[in-house]
Design a protein around this nucleic acid. Structure first.
Lengths: 245, 245
DNA sequence: GCAAAAGTGTTGGAAATACACCCATGT
DNA sequence: ACATGGGTGTATTTCCAACACTTTTGC
């Protein structure tokens, strides 16, 4: 059980590494998916009720062990596919969590992935599961360290939607500016000025006016837009943002 | 070897998980440290020559397997301690890399940590090791997927020093504004206006003028400053940065 | 015609940028 | 005295924030 950890792994021969893997370094790896959706002007997350006695009645993220023949990303996509039936969704690794006693079955390090999907398009696939879209803001007391993971992913999302066009994955392909603003306001928990918000997005010139309008609204219908991913891809990224802390 | 992956891990009982861990999910976890330093106005990274035949002559990051009784962060700190003798350095997890064939000894997922240290203060400890500070810009062809890991960490650093006061960890406690600017220019690969750079940092009011001056410089000595971490800690973080992508 | 949200411009202040000269020190 | 980098101020521009009224539709 004792291993000479003063040696660099790179200096060990492969046999030594294998031996260590079988003894001192038996750790499971799981992936936990934080699947965000947006509905009724609120940020939602897809959860399941935990069955483990220890966490009875608590909510849990969607996770599974990573098999040794699959990539980490693959594992995340597999889980998403199993839950929502979709495989063309936004998915990104956020970070890993490896506290010693985070899992009752033993030492399991988990890698958190964040996924953004449009709830409307995926509703059918998850109806007969024991899955629930849960409001993010009113959540607490989850199973494992999942509350912590969710918090980290939520902060990650808040940061991320300001610098990358992720938000659109949470909306239908065609959306109104009001919907887009509601999304930002909900995720960031801020109030924004409508005119400045519009100005901002129009000046980016990444929204395509498709000359369609909302229907079935009890007021003047808003214009619908589509996000132009191609144009966005072609923009060059700046590496200088300005020092500010 | 076949496992019913359609079941959620949360729905499996603990015995099933353990069984799976012993068979289908045997994956090693390692930590790789990207240890950055700053010297001669250049960003450096601490590397070792790989001994594995497969990677003969190539450079490798400092990594080791994570033992099952240690936290991920602990493992990273252990490696740092072993290499540099320091344990009060800046260290942060960046992300994990889990491609199937990234390691010749089998399936090993690695978690990359970024560390920033002041080369001068740590020089003695690493003299008699087979370690080398290597310029980041001229590096290529590393062992494993370490080039990729380094690239990701470098980008992470570029982003990070603009929004958090990490950079100071790369400098002596007392530094001149010129040194600070050189640091930013080297890491970001940009040219900055000296006056505006000063204005920026002075307006943050986080630099303490300690009324000392450079010595042994062949020109007018510059004032030395210290970064005031306490004051920084007390500042409240903003969550709204402005949409821009 | 009324309720409800869509759509639209201007202005003032703050911050970022661009830019050039004198100063202190070592040799 | 001279070479080297330290130190400083101002004018311009750009970006962000604040703010109110008219328009269109459904009921």
């Amino acid at each position: 059980m004792t291993v000479d950890t003063s040696k660099r792994s790179d200096k060990k021969d492969i046999k030594t590494i294998l031996h260590q893997l079988e003894n001192d370094a038996v750790i499971g790896i799981s992936v936990d998916c934080v699947i965000f959706g947006f509905d009724e002007n609120e940020l939602k997350v897809l959860l399941i009720k935990s069955d483990l006695k220890k966490f009875e009645g608590k909510w849990s993220l969607l996770g599974d062990l990573v098999n040794n023949h699959e990539d980490l990303d693959e594992a995340a996509y597999r889980i998403l596919k199993e839950r929502t039936g979709m495989d063309d969704v936004y998915l990104e690794q956020v970070r890993s969590f490896g506290e010693l006693n985070r899992h009752p079955a033993g030492r399991i390090v988990t890698i958190a992935y964040c996924s953004l999907i449009n709830i409307q398009h995926h509703e059918l696939k998850i109806l007969d599961n024991e899955l629930h879209w849960h409001r993010v803001v009113t959540l607490s007391e989850m199973a494992f360290d999942h509350q912590k993971i969710l918090d980290v992913c939520h902060e990650w999302l808040q940061r991320r939607i300001q610098e990358h066009p992720l938000g659109f994955s949470l909306l239908p392909q065609k959306f109104s500016l009001r919907e887009l603003q509601n999304l930002y306001e909900a995720i960031l928990d801020v109030k924004l000025d409508r005119r400045n918000f519009r100005k901002k997005f129009f000046s980016m010139e990444l929204l395509e006016d498709i000359n369609e309008f909302e229907t079935d609204v009890p007021h003047r219908p808003g214009k619908l837009y589509r996000f132009n991913y191609d144009k966005y891809q072609k923009k060059e990224r700046k590496k200088w943002f300005g020092i500010d802390f």
